[in-house]
Design a protein around this nucleic acid. Structure first.
Lengths: 119, 119
DNA sequence: TGCGGTACTTACCTTCTGGTAAGTGCACTC
DNA sequence: GAGTGCACTTACCAGAAGGTAAGTACCGCA
């Protein structure tokens, strides 16, 4: 029940897009897949410092359901699964670009003290 | 402590922008203020069907802190407070436009059954 | 005199999100 | 034969987000 409780009726486009992007790691996953083209599960896990396996799986599943990422399973041992962006994923990433630029601007505005420094 | 617990170090621009937009009603508030230019508290409450006063105040306060909205208090009785977008708010709204377009497209894709129908 | 409207504030409660830690089955390496 | 890596799954738990309902202080209106 929980997995598909989302996707309610939307007020507007932003709403619909947000529903798909909201999730702590989704925009990072999008960016990672955009940057590398194709990535394996463990590669993503290592690429997104701090993500838990549970959340990575969950977000990837949701993004697959939403038609953003493609999941290719190779029936081998050890298991191999490759993730990549679909056309919708690519276009979403493009639509996020201006927002990213705005955010970069904001980081610059609020000062250099907010630059990523992990504890 | 809770009000300013956000604004952690950011991974990237998207992250920084999301931090500012995430909140159930924030994008709607942005849109409402963009559309009407200036709105009073009660006008916003009526415009955003379903929002609670608590969340509206809270979101407006955060957006004010983030430099997105301007709050103009008229010391009269009954009280009068006007909200409007700052330049940053306007530019954020512009940056959200492509995302909104993508979302509208998505709504069209996933079918007409998801069109806003409030219970 | 009581109701409605203004713009909030406060306390309490529920739901959702995300994190931790452990387990799974199989193959390769030391 | 113990340890490691692969791609997960499961159970449990903490904290954040958001909703409900009531209260505040003042005024205009009937």
């Amino acid at each position: 029940m929980a997995p598909t409780a989302r996707r309610g009726p939307y007020f507007c486009g932003i709403d619909a897009a947000m529903d798909v992007v909201s999730g702590k790691w989704k925009s990072l996953i999008l960016w990672e897949l955009h940057h590398y083209g194709v990535r394996r599960f463990a590669e993503l896990r290592r690429g997104l410092a701090g993500v838990s396996e549970k959340m990575l799986v969950q977000h990837l599943r949701e993004m697959e359901e939403d038609g953003l990422v493609h999941r290719e399973v190779y029936r081998e041992v050890p298991p191999k699964v490759e993730y990549s962006l679909t056309d919708h994923g690519v276009s979403l990433n493009a639509a996020l670009a201006p927002l990213g630029a705005w955010g970069t601007d904001r980081i610059r505005r609020i000062g250099a003290d907010k630059i990523p420094v992990e504890p």
